[in-house]
Each structure stands twice: as structure tokens, then as C-alpha cells.
Design a protein around this nucleic acid. Structure first.
Lengths: 146, 146
DNA sequence: AAAATTTAGTTGGCATATGCAACTAAATTG
DNA sequence: CAATTTAGTTGCATATGCCAACTAAATTTT
């Protein structure tokens, strides 16, 4: 059951996560927690989504999420509107400020990754992209559950 | 500055992390926090290491780490012995119980990964391994800082 | 070698993050 | 309409992180 590919994946994860700064609780170098930043992204990429859908996507506690959303609202990053079809649910929308804030995170992340890729030649970048495509393609097999 | 490879990497991260269950604060499905589990692994893979070396490797506060280690000791997972060469430092060693506990995590992780890889044929696994090797090789460039 | 400085670890205190369960309101079932 | 389920909120407990004070032991200075 513990075949070589499994070990390879696990070794890769141990190598990749710290290199990409994907450990720790802060979103990159920012003062924001990774969770707070991700919530902002969820709403950015999914305007009108609800707390429930975010909780499902991020797999976090709905109580905790409720507070994060309240904090984002208080900070002026998003608005809550009663869902048209469901009186219990609130549709979430980023404000201009929130969109700008999310963009800051995107920019920061881009810079970090760019630094990591700096030593690579164009040919090497191409190889890297192809390898990432391959990994994505293969791990997408047997994907249609959720 | 925001080139295609950077976007590729970021898209890959968004795809890969949730798929590998690398988000969230719990070590896999266990009741253990990721931090507690990682400390156990550090000692497992580095018998006789010290709190200072772990704090450096994991980049966490020494006070917090001190408490985690105490908890692990109280739980019977590890022993502390005064370092032979340095009277201030304590060498850390897993007990049999601690080794078994760590192994449970390893097994759990192996199973999760095995499930993900289940749909892949042997040929596809080989392709995957090669792709992971390529990514690792390329991201290792310009690596000798620390 | 004694004093001053540094290092390893512990502990207390504090702030925030996270998780869980009880609770309210609204929707859905039968 | 009563019973059940669902979306969110809130109270409370624990986890996590950070900083500073403190002890003991090692290292450096003079």
C-alpha cells in the first residue's frame, strides 16, 4: 500500500511547502492571517457567495468564519446583503477597498513567487510549467466527486 | 514582473494544496494540531535534537515550543535528557509510544495520498514522479542561502 | 580567573486564532 | 401547521504566537 509514488509525493510536499512559504499562519509576510486573506479571495473570485459556501470551500468552522466576515465588514472590505431567494443567507460582495486589499495580496504573492523563479532561465521556466501541467493533469484524474 | 510562470505556480498552488489537504490547522484528520505533529516528526527524524534546533527548523517561538515539548513529555511521547556536551540543552528522544504515535500520522498521511493516487496507472505514476522530480530540481536552483 | 555577555530553556502574561456547541431566524418537509 | 433542517451568530474553551523576565550553564573579556 505504501508504494514509491506515495513516498515521492510526501517528500515533494515536505520540500515544496516551506519553499513556497505555504506553512505558517500568516499570509505571506503580511500581518493578515492566511485564513483572513483566503476569505477575501473567496469573495473576490466568487462575488455574491455565502458564508456557507466559503466554509465548505475552505473547510473551516462557520462560527469562526462568521467573525472573520464581520471583521472584514467592519474593516470596510465587504458588504452583506440578504440573499434574494433565501432570507437566512447573506450574499457577500467586496467593496472597492476590499478589492484593492485583495489585490495587494495578489501582488505580494506574485512578487514572492517571482523571487523564487528568478534564477530560472526561460527554457527552465518552460520545463517547470510543463511539469506543473503534468502534475495537475494526473492529479485531476478521478476528480468528479464534489 | 508578473510573468506567465508566476501565474502558473500560483494556479498550481491553489489546485494542489486543497487536493493534498495541506490547508487547515489540523494534521490531516487527526485531533492533533499540525504544529504538535510536526514537533513529533522533528524528533522522530532527528533523535537527540534540541528545542533550539526545532524552533529554528519550524520557525516557532521557543516559549510555545517549550510547552508543546512538555505536553509531549507528559503524554509519554518523548524524554528529555541533559545534553552530554552542553548542560543547558536537553536532548530529545521519542519513547516507544511516541514513535508509535508518529507512525500513526505517517500511516494516515500515506493512506490519504494513496487514495489520491489510486486512479493512476503505473505508467501515469511514473510520469508523475518524473514531473515532481523536475519541479524539485528546478526549484532547488539558487538554493544555497541558509 | 572573575566579571560580563550570550545561550538554552522555562514561565507568566497577554492577544489573537480556532473549534465546538447552544441558540435564533428562516426555509423546507410532510 | 408541527417537525426538521439550514444559515448565521454568539458564548466559551483551547490553541497559537509573541514578548519579556528569570535561571542555569557556556563563552568571551579583561
Amino acid at each position: 500500500m505504501t508504494d514509491a509514488t506515495v513516498q515521492k509525493i510526501r517528500a515533494f510536499n515536505r520540500f515544496y511547502m516551506p519553499r513556497m512559504n505555504l506553512l505558517g499562519n500568516h499570509y505571506l509576510g503580511s500581518e493578515y492571517s492566511a485564513t483572513e486573506a483566503r476569505v477575501l479571495f473567496e469573495v473576490l473570485q466568487n462575488d455574491g457567495c455565502t458564508a456557507t459556501s466559503i466554509a465548505r470551500a475552505m473547510n473551516i468552522d462557520k462560527g469562526y468564519l462568521s467573525r472573520i466576515i464581520s471583521a472584514h465588514e467592519k474593516a470596510g472590505y465587504l458588504r452583506r446583503t440578504v440573499s434574494s431567494g433565501d432570507g437566512r443567507a447573506r450574499s457577500l460582495h467586496l467593496t472597492e477597498t476590499g478589492r484593492a486589499r485583495a489585490q495587494e495580496f495578489v501582488d505580494l504573492s506574485n512578487e514572492e513567487v517571482a523571487d523564487i523563479l528568478a534564477p530560472l532561465s526561460p527554457a527552465e521556466r518552460k520545463r517547470l510549467e510543463d511539469a506543473l501541467d503534468t502534475v495537475t493533469e494526473l492529479l485531476s484524474k478521478g476528480e468528479q466527486q464534489a
